[in-house]
Design a protein around this nucleic acid. Structure first.
Lengths: 337, 337
DNA sequence: TTGTATGCGTTATCAT
DNA sequence: ATGATAACGCATACAA
């Protein structure tokens, strides 16, 4: 079952391979005759050019790599979708790599992307400069999305982590909460670090309880959200509100609240980072820190095309805003002081 | 910024390109000296073989294509993850294509996969034989997953659609329900068709109301689940239980119930096809038709490797089972007759 | 064990 | 506008 080649097409069409190639790649120097003859032959044979051979000859693969931490995280699924759709507009195929929130798998995917000679790379990386050294050294045009690596010149598109968290804490304290439990993301990620720092700053600003015991370090996956909720709720002086740094940890945490018969919005207040569709399952609806995932994906691709074109685009910070819904009513009895 | 080639490595290592190539691809006929010299050169230069060139020379790309309807559907996100993880075990890179529940985009991805000369293809297809003609004609080893196309010899791994739905309807009628609203999947998919047929059969078997007005045809996306719930609940004699053919439509439908102040498990019973993590948000927990997504992904890859090896494996049907939780209590007041 | 040379399928260059 | 041919980077058959 040997694959067809352009030679077969040329033969069938009665032209040379050069002419066949020109017709196939839309070169202007072709006669009407040649065009129809080749097109007919292609259709009749069901020929498809070999992308590998084409990429080898040209220096481009028309392919971009996308390395994300976890497809099963709805936020990243949405982001992957957004990137892919935008990449289509530029005739790019998206090679998708799922790092599984794991440093080693991330490394492996970076390696694969370089081996595949992607024209550009979009990544939500974890770790530090050393982990990305190979990618940066390779010179492949790169853009960071959602997460960044410090001390690089890599353009990025990120959410305004600090503002979202700040607004959430202000809102909760405004509702009378003083003990706000925080389920943080991993400190190996920029989002994990920035959101935690913003939480701490906001506690200071609002004079809420700044108690280390109110912080649980999770890993952005749901099991750690559940563990965090258990840890926080089992304390002597448990929080009256919970804030989780991503949607999966929120799901895990809320599941634990359900288990314990703590009604969200009644027995405990809850705010989640990221607004995912599944949250509409909740009644009352969840107060969330939302940002525009579609815009994030679009910008990432747009920035990448600029980098590929040799430009050095400015990084983009997308606004995040608090959407207040039913899960954060005023604390009954006012502030616990 | 010309990319390094094996020639640079050979030069640096002081050997011929042939020797360098043999070392790089683990050919046995190499001396210890050559191995270390080449390895050192590779490391020093940061060389990475060009996958395109390698694929062109060999006839294999070490790549499989995965064409799914929608990454944003948690079921398919889980499936993609499972396939990818299993493919890794066989040193396959997974090229991921997201058809967006759209026939045209599906076509385009099949085309891309063939152009990329994937060694094999895993797809959850929509449509009929004609839509898949190009793929089938190409002779690329193919396996269907979740969904199938009738009248093909393509091995598949699918859930036992009928049994799950049947058990759900039996359970609901056992709880006293006679009017069971069904939000169906698109009839352009095998899962949509099989589940709807099973629902109808089960109605007959259980002597529940067999009323065409209880059926709403959705498209497996959440908006259609919401539309379905509205349509069904606005009827004169509305259903007392809702059954939705996938998780996204369930999310949309439950959101509508929330809007209308209908408490799931109290004012209305609900069963969802697919058990996704986000459902743990619900309290009481959701009764679901569950099946093993991980096994599905694993089997798909395993079957594909067999097809690639020239074998003709048997198709696999994975059991689905009803998990009864809090959203389907006995109907207060017994059957409405 | 190693080096040389050829070919994978395509595009681009150079004539014509 | 077209044809012949070299070249892309790598693996392998063949010679040594």
């Amino acid at each position: 079952m040997r694959s067809l080649t352009i030679k077969d097409v040329a033969e069938k069409a009665g032209v040379s391979v050069g002419t066949a190639s020109r017709v196939l790649s839309g070169h202007p120097a072709t006669s009407q005759e040649a065009r129809t003859a080749v097109s007919d032959a292609v259709k009749e044979l069901g020929f498809r050019p070999n992308a590998q051979a084409r990429s080898l000859r040209k220096t481009t693969t028309q392919t971009i790599g996308l390395v994300l931490p976890d497809v099963r995280n709805p936020f990243f699924a949405d982001l992957a979708h957004a990137v892919e759709q935008r990449a289509r507009d530029f005739e790019y195929l998206t090679l998708f790599g799922n790092a599984n929130e794991d440093a080693e798998q991330q490394d492996r995917y970076f390696d694969i992307m370089l081996t595949q000679r992607v024209d550009g790379l979009i990544a939500a990386p974890r770790g530090n400069l050393a982990d990305l050294q190979a990618v940066l050294d390779s010179g492949v045009p790169t853009v960071f999305v959602d997460r960044v690596i410090a001390n690089t010149k890599v353009p990025s598109v990120t959410p305004d982590n600090a503002t979202g968290i700040q607004e959430a804490v202000r809102h909760l304290t405004g509702q009378g909460h003083r003990r706000i439990g925080y389920i943080a993301g991993p400190q190996s990620t920029s989002t994990g670090r920035e959101r935690l720092a913003a939480y701490k700053d906001a506690l200071t600003e609002t004079h809420a309880d700044d108690d280390g015991a109110l912080i649980f370090l999770g890993d952005f996956q749901s099991a750690s959200g559940a563990a965090g909720a258990r840890h926080l709720l089992e304390q002597q002086d448990p929080p009256t509100a919970l804030l989780a740094a991503d949607s999966l940890m929120s799901i895990g945490a809320i599941a634990v609240c359900n288990e314990r018969g703590l009604a969200i919005g009644a027995d405990i207040a809850f705010v989640a980072y990221d607004d995912i569709e599944a949250f509409t399952l909740l009644n009352p609806a969840l107060t969330v820190i939302a940002h525009d995932v579609n815009a994030m994906g679009r910008f990432a691709v747009d920035l990448l095309t600029q980098v590929i074109a040799g430009e050095t685009p400015e990084s983009v910070i997308l606004p995040s805003r608090l959407i207040i819904r039913g899960s954060t009513p005023p604390l009954p009895g006012g502030p616990t002081q």
